[in-house]
Design a protein around this nucleic acid. Structure first.
Lengths: 354, 354
DNA sequence: GACTCCGGCGTAAACGTTTACAGGTCATCG
DNA sequence: CGATGACCTGTAAACGTTTACGCCGGAGTC
């Protein structure tokens, strides 16, 4: 360790300054009711001893760690760092730190993290995952602190959730593609079946198709693996199943990126032969070639909503430490999404049979 | 909160099971020397009361939080999530959690984080940043726990560091470009001057140029802003300064992506008119169009090395809690890098004047 | 001059664990 | 039959803070 020797405690500071530990605490903390010269002596002693108060001891006494837990499905998907960054920022502003747990696309691991962070006594917990299972729900109920869900609707009473209006996103994408003239499309879902976002986006797309009077077969479902690689495979599969497919609607931008690569490997051009729509609008989406048409999520707003809501509940719990304040099921807050048209979509090839 | 009422303490469990708190602790922890039926009673009581031991209290008693701090320069740069993920995984394997602080590309903020995490009494600290200033160094020395540096060489005694052999990366890139025939190139650095990785890569490139007997002016330095946007601007600038530039060597893949976009906006083709080399080999590098030629870092190995080294020091500190074990300056471990040739590089246009 | 009031400070009790130490019971052995 | 362990379990003292309470002395009031 850089500094040698042990950490000084408040007791040693008190001894050196010739006061009691109470006075040290008062001087260094809220500074209320302590004579200026006394405080000066205390501060000097603290400096001399390189005193650093123990956060652990304080946490124990105050019954608050000023830490929030954050569980994300997959930190390597560029969508999540945006969420993490916004949450960490908002938390830090309030003097909170963030304990991060990466699910690595593994539901079991997410559930483990729930326990782990619970034992660490975080003051609040945000779980950003679009595939919450029943087992997640059971464990969330057991977590002894306020929880906010990001990316999934809330199924649990008194646990609020915030997510994008995924169905609306699906509808926007369909509107865009259909108006360009596409009639044979495939939806490249995420590999995991429980994914509520994937389901909602598909459901939105299908319902819009129905409203437009198009047959259900207009959009086929193709399960994809995760990430870029999954998209690559799924695109290949989609076009092998039906070579006349003219548009691919992808669960997220990473899959869309893979899909474009897959199409290109088959000798197809995007968007001339096949159009591709992504979801998320990750940072590099506009820099990709072709620049990705995608559905933009209000990621920053989502993160802020989550943090605000979490802190409201943390503060409420601090004052009146009763349990559930009302029995109502947690509110689910849906944020609007936006279609961003770039160059990965265009009209279908003129020879395309409908 | 999902569960109403307060948390049960070890005392309540003890009371319910009709034993002392010591026995409860023994039953639930190492399970040594306690009669099976007693333990059964304790476990039952714990279940009935939904008892969860307080990590904070344990930390206080054991003087260990089983938490490591992780400071990263910019979580939104896809390079860092790889590091975070690998570190979190290795830490979790050992029962540790990760307290994350995002520097948001701001050195001041990184320094703040050092203090913040120090007060949280993390057992160890990893700082992943390629621009450590003198002020960083001063603060790192004050941190009361083992520290490992990722991405910068160690300047501080007893603080080990692990990073890629950036100079070798620069040399590899130059070798590649020169052998393709390029003689007018620009290096697009990061915006921040303190960046040691940027410096080393440039230094490696320059020294290789000298070895090859090429004039120093062969590679010009252009300062770029951060991220994709910065790369876009820098590429434009580089070609305005010297329209005959045929290759761009970029500080990282994000900048390279931006550069390609910038070039394209000027009507130039990559790699026909201008070649582009990145650095990092982020996940999407091969999926970009053109697929990015880049220098691959051994990110996973780096993260594992950091964690291993950190835990060795944590464990050492636990046994013999003396300070600096030896006065030697921290070892700096350099990992080899690898040139990955894809399609963003090629020979210069035939008409290019040398 | 006795009373109250109040600012400044110390005393000590928490917060919820872990664990050294000691005590108590019972079987074993000389 | 007393001594010796082996094995469980309880007592209580930490770990480093914060803060309710109370004490003390000086100023103000009548």
């Amino acid at each position: 360790m850089p500094t040698s020797g042990k950490q000084a405690t408040i007791r040693e500071v008190a001894a050196r300054a010739g006061v009691s530990t109470a006075t040290v605490s008062r001087s260094l903390r809220h500074s209320a009711n302590v004579q200026p010269e006394t405080r000066e002596r205390v501060e000097e002693a603290a400096r001399a001893l390189r005193y650093r108060p123990s956060g652990v001891a304080r946490s124990l006494k105050l019954r608050s760690t000023r830490t929030i837990g954050l569980i994300v499905t997959d930190i390597e998907n560029p969508y999540f760092p945006q969420v993490v960054s916004a949450i960490e920022d908002a938390a830090r502003e309030r003097g909170y730190s963030v304990l991060l747990a990466d699910g690595r696309r593994d539901a079991e691991r997410e559930i483990e993290s729930l326990d782990l962070l619970g034992e660490r006594e975080v003051d609040g917990l945000i779980i950003a995952s679009s595939e919450l299972t029943v087992r997640h729900g059971d464990r969330i109920r057991e977590v002894p602190c306020p929880v906010v869900i990001v990316n999934s609707p809330s199924t649990i009473s008194a646990v609020p959730a915030v997510l994008s209006d995924n169905a609306a996103g699906g509808r926007l994408a369909i509107d865009h593609l259909v108006s360009l003239g596409h009639r044979r499309m495939a939806y490249l879902a995420s590999g995991r079946r429980e994914d509520s976002a994937a389901r909602d986006r598909l459901a939105g797309a299908i319902s819009r198709l129905a409203e437009l009077g198009l047959p259900a077969g207009t959009l086929r479902l193709v399960r994809s693996g995760d990430g870029v690689r999954g998209g690559e495979r799924a695109a290949t599969e989609a076009l092998h199943e039906d070579a006349a497919t003219t548009a691919l609607l992808c669960f997220n931008d990473l899959i869309a990126l893979g899909a474009i690569r897959g199409l290109r490997a088959m000798g197809l051009d995007v968007p001339r032969d096949v159009s591709v729509v992504g979801f998320d609008d990750i940072e590099i989406a506009p820099y990709f070639d072709p620049a990705l048409t995608t559905i933009r999520q209000a990621t920053g707003a989502m993160a802020r909503w989550a943090v605000t809501s979490l802190f409201r509940r943390i503060d409420a719990g601090r004052e009146a430490d009763a349990g559930a304040i009302d029995g109502a099921p947690g509110p689910t807050h849906r944020l609007p999404v936006e279609l961003v048209i770039r160059s990965s979509t265009g009209p279908p090839p003129s020879g395309a049979q409908p």
